[in-house]
Every structure is written in C-alpha cells, then in structure tokens.
Design a protein around this nucleic acid. Sequence first.
DNA 1: GCCAACGTTGGC
DNA 2: GCCAACGTTGGC
Length: 151
Amino acid sequence: MRYWLMKSEPTDVSVDDLAALPNQTVAWYGIRNYQARNFMRDQMKVGDKVFFYHSSCAEPGIAGIASVSKLAYPDATQFDPKNKYFDPKATPENPRWFNVDVKLAKKTRLISIKELREHPQLAHMRILQRGNRLSITPVDPKEWEFIMGLI
DNA sequence: GCCAACGTTGGC
DNA sequence: GCCAACGTTGGC
C-alpha cells in the first residue's frame, strides 16, 4: 500500500464538501498533468491512503485523511466540449486522462503548510520543495506516520 | 529534436 | 496581485 498527498482547491471541493457528498466519495477529475495522471493510472490501488490537502486558499494545509476507493478510469470531463477540462485530442477509444475515486476517512484539524515546514522530519516532502506544483505526490511511509502523530 | 515563448500553479 | 518554477506548445 502506498501513501499520497492530493491537492484540492477548497473553492472547488473542500473537505466539508467531500464529507457532504454521497458515500463521501469524489472522482478526482480534471488532472491534466502527465506525472500526476501516471501516479493515478499506474500506481494507485484501492486502499492507498491519502492526505487531502487544501491549496490555493487562505490556509493551505492537510485537512483530512482519505483513501483510494476506485482504480483509475477515464476522466469523463475530457470528452465534454462544454467542460473546462475538455481535451479535443482525447477520444473514448483513446482516452488521455484518468482519475481514481477518493473517499474521505475523516476530517482532521488543519495542519498548515507552515506547521509542516517547522518539522525537520518532513523537510524532504515534495509538497514543501521550492517550485513544487505537482498536485498529486507520493508520501514516504515515515512522513505519513510522523504526520499522523501530529493529528 | 531544440528551445523560446507562453501558460499555469500556488505560496506568499 | 506578484512572481518563481516548471510544463507545454509549436516554429524551425
């Protein structure tokens, strides 16, 4: 089993939004970065654990714990011309973008990026590196355990 | 297949 | 709103 951190903009889907969804599950649609896609398509398995992270907001940070609840499948938004994630080069026969489903396990207190930066044990986390833009990143098991200890 | 230009991300 | 970082695009 692997551990991940997945960014969501709370104005799009916040941890409270996720908690209110049927089965507390959301399709992680709209990923248009190959590295992030490959993580979902090639590596994520049902049961993998996920830190649900709020980004591009007043208080960026980890807001919940979730898990992968469905293996990657073609992202429906790529086929819809009216959708902002429409990709004219994608076809149902040859889809380009995939997403998994993510199910909330529990909302946590907000562990801000500022707090994460205070711990030397977490200094190598991808999310904390300068210039990091990847919205889905693997989390080291030791980092996962450490952060679980903060919650 | 190089690389300049451009667009996007996301913390601050 | 700024801007550094980095991914993508497209002309050559």
